[in-house]
Design a protein around this nucleic acid. Structure first.
Lengths: 181, 181
DNA sequence: GTAACCATGTAACACGTTACATGATTGT
DNA sequence: ACAATCATGTAACGTGTTACATGGTTAC
């Protein structure tokens, strides 16, 4: 159910096409929600059927036609209602930790490689988010009130990545010391 | 697919009934994987059909009969194979952050309540995990090599909870200051 | 020429959640 | 009385992933 509201939030901020929303999910919104374009196109269809969003078809010369979606007043109402409900704690499901838990079954090098790959990805992501943060707070800028909570979602992304990277540093050290004792 | 291997890891450690595995997922294994008993019973059925686990039915006087499962050699093989494959980074999906992102649509008090509920839950969880950790490292005990990586999964759980709580402290402060400026 | 970008969609399948169903025993 | 613990399972539904399908433009 949450994807639908993530989309409504995105459309409440700014109208857009499915393609654009999908891109946002890869970038901005992406550090707290994740979805494939297929999921998004599908959900946009349902949302339009439920009249929570409307769209206009825009033909283009060079590119395929597109649908620009915007939230309706019914959509805004549904969104506010959902926002007022308590959220569920989301369960943890990290396949990498299954591996660690079963590490006596595989050589440390296999684990190491996997962790290093994740480290690279997350290090890159962290750099992106930190750059974003720095742009927002550069030269003594103050975050406007209305944007403060969006800013907090960014900080959450950064905090989570940092915690993961700190932890993985320890694990890698331990794995390395095991290889050449 | 990962649930099946989480179960195999659990059974590789120690044979058990579906009920016992489900309990483990609520406690030990629970800080990195999560599943309902229905999911587990279902997957156990499939695993048995695929001969990756076997079971014997044990009738009991006072209680309903139970099935004690253990991993087979084919199961161990399948597990090792899976462990050797690279894992995927798991996508982030936190409904609470959707709320924050859309915070201009709801009064801060609604957000505050929700966050406080989460804080209580996670504070409790953190205390449990820290107690577990302290028991394992108490009185200068050294973690045996074979258990070191299991211990790291525990540290990961603790780190993630701490990062979340640190972040939420900031958010709550900001929300409170907005209520009475 | 090959990849990336723009742009949308269908269909099959896998995975997860919730509700329903059963039923004795133990502790408050 | 009521809830919790032990113990397993089916069925309906909702969500997420992967593959397939189409097709022009721009940049290397």
């Amino acid at each position: 159910m949450a994807l639908r509201y993530a989309i409504l939030v995105s459309l409440h901020d700014k109208q857009g096409t499915g393609y654009e929303i999908a891109k946002e999910f890869d970038n901005g919104v992406g550090y707290f929600w994740n979805a494939t374009s297929q999921q998004i196109y599908n959900e946009l269809g349902k949302l339009a059927r439920d009249n929570l969003i409307s769209f206009k078809v825009v033909p283009q010369r060079d590119r395929p036609q597109k649908k620009i979606y915007r939230i309706t007043s019914a959509g805004k109402k549904a969104l506010v209602e959902w926002l007022s409900q308590p959220t569920k704690i989301q369960p943890i499901r990290d396949p990498l930790l299954i591996k660690l838990f079963a590490s006596d079954l595989i050589p440390p090098s296999v684990l190491l490689e996997d962790i290093e790959t994740h480290r690279k990805l997350r290090t890159q992501l962290l750099a992106n988010l930190e750059a974003l943060r720095d742009r927002k707070t550069a030269s003594g800028k103050k975050i406007p009130k209305a944007l403060r909570y969006k800013y907090f979602t960014l900080l959450r992304g950064i905090g989570a990545l940092q915690a993961w990277l700190d932890w993985s540093t320890e694990v890698v050290q331990s794995l390395r010391s095991e290889k050449r004792p």
